[in-house]
Design a protein around this nucleic acid. Structure first.
Lengths: 230, 230
DNA sequence: GGGGCGGTTGAACAAGTGTTTAATCTGGTG
DNA sequence: CACCAGATTAAACACTTGTTCAACCGCCCC
């Protein structure tokens, strides 16, 4: 079953129902969160709640199918979309935000709710950011860190977390059409401070940093402290 | 009616029920999220669901009462707890985390769910951070920014958002007893990278920063650009 | 001691949930 | 045409939700 492509002989709308349900679920979950009822999703897809269960087995399996589809779509769309060093800025530059908006919003909902996909996603981001930052270090454009792994995780959580929080507070009840514009506004608001912080830091001198290193019991990589402090 | 203290003549448990319900709700909401049932909260407080409604009117009003109590308690506990420049690090230093853990966790849940309290809270944080950063600037320990307001908001969202996300992913199903330890681990993991970034920045040169300023249509505060770029 | 009165309960209610089941419709195949 | 298999539906189910209602209990006041 389900081995034929979209362009098969028939009217083409035969087995499209299951994917239509899935897409409707993605859009609806992205818009209203995962606590939305099955009947709402079913109505969006123009079917009955029973049919959703018939095709996916349960609501959890439906969400799993959504997770997988979003992940796969965005991966083959552009792997580095969400996984550059800063995590967000490059995503704004691509003009496809409009088209992918439901998917991106679905990801934000996932991050807000927690769970399997969210964890997998941020681990992917960290792994990719590790590469980007290492490459940047080797190229001499990124400063070395006393604890590279910790810094990578920190940057990933900062970028992702602030974005999720921002949309939780300001974009929770936005219409799907507004989402892309909201997204651009978020980027425009935060791009400059981010770049400024990345470029010049926040503090004038190293006293706080060094005091913390004195205070902390086991400073990591104490060996190459001089190479950074110089 | 509620003018007596705990050590009054009677059994002392007369009017304590309403606050006991509120505290149980705070703890339970903090632990399991706001979608938890009224009967669970009532059982925690040793009462019936109907009584909760009788005292608070509705579940939403119960949550409002929880919001207000948490906000007031934390405010008079220590105003600067959540509102220093970095937003999180000082909170770890105080030894009262254990005692206030349910409240802090309740705040995290609030931020995760969004809504009135969350918005009010982050606006408070931004306002206070503005003061701290201005004072730091005046004292010469904080670098000036091209757009101070934007930087303040950026820092607040970064610090808060990463914390919320971290607990969403790693502390969602933690026991209340583990929470304080989790909190400390979070701080320990992220304090060094944060201080490092604040001290030395991330990028070696200013090319990215300056390129963005060229690209962006209207750079804010273009007048004092030299004072920063110098 | 009688009378209220607030605190408190347990049961009931209406609405919503995810899920199941039996029936219906539809289209391809012998 | 008969027939079967899958898609699809409407209704029912079991359950939880927030909320309401009538009753009960215990205390204070007259």
């Amino acid at each position: 079953m389900a081995s034929e492509g979209v362009g098969s002989g028939g009217n083409g709308g035969e087995f499209a129902t299951v994917s239509r349900i899935r897409d409707a679920a993605i859009a609806r979950f992205a818009r209203d969160g995962f606590q939305v009822g099955l009947r709402t999703v079913a109505a969006d897809a123009g079917v009955t709640a029973g049919l959703v269960i018939h095709h996916f087995g349960s609501k959890d399996e439906l969400r799993l199918a959504c997770d997988e589809h979003v992940l796969e779509t965005l991966r083959q769309e552009k792997t580095k979309t969400l996984t550059d060093g800063t995590g967000t800025m490059l995503l704004a530059q691509m003009a496809e935000v409009e088209r992918l908006a439901p998917m991106v919003r679905y990801l934000l909902r996932s991050m807000q709710a927690g769970g399997e996909l969210a964890l997998k996603l941020i681990e992917n981001m960290i792994a990719d950011a590790e590469q980007y930052l290492s490459a940047g270090e080797a190229a001499g454009v990124v400063r070395p860190s006393r604890d590279r792994a910790a810094r990578t995780r920190y940057l990933a959580y900062q970028a992702t977390g602030s974005m999720v929080l921002w949309f939780t507070l300001h974009g929770a009840d936005a219409e799907p059409a507004e989402f892309a514009a909201l997204f651009r506004r978020y980027i425009e608001d935060l791009a400059l401070p981010a770049l400024e912080l990345f470029t010049q830091g926040l503090l004038v001198d190293r006293s706080m940093h060094d005091e913390y290193l004195m205070y902390v019991p086991d400073p990591p990589c104490a060996g190459d402290a001089d190479s950074i402090a110089s």
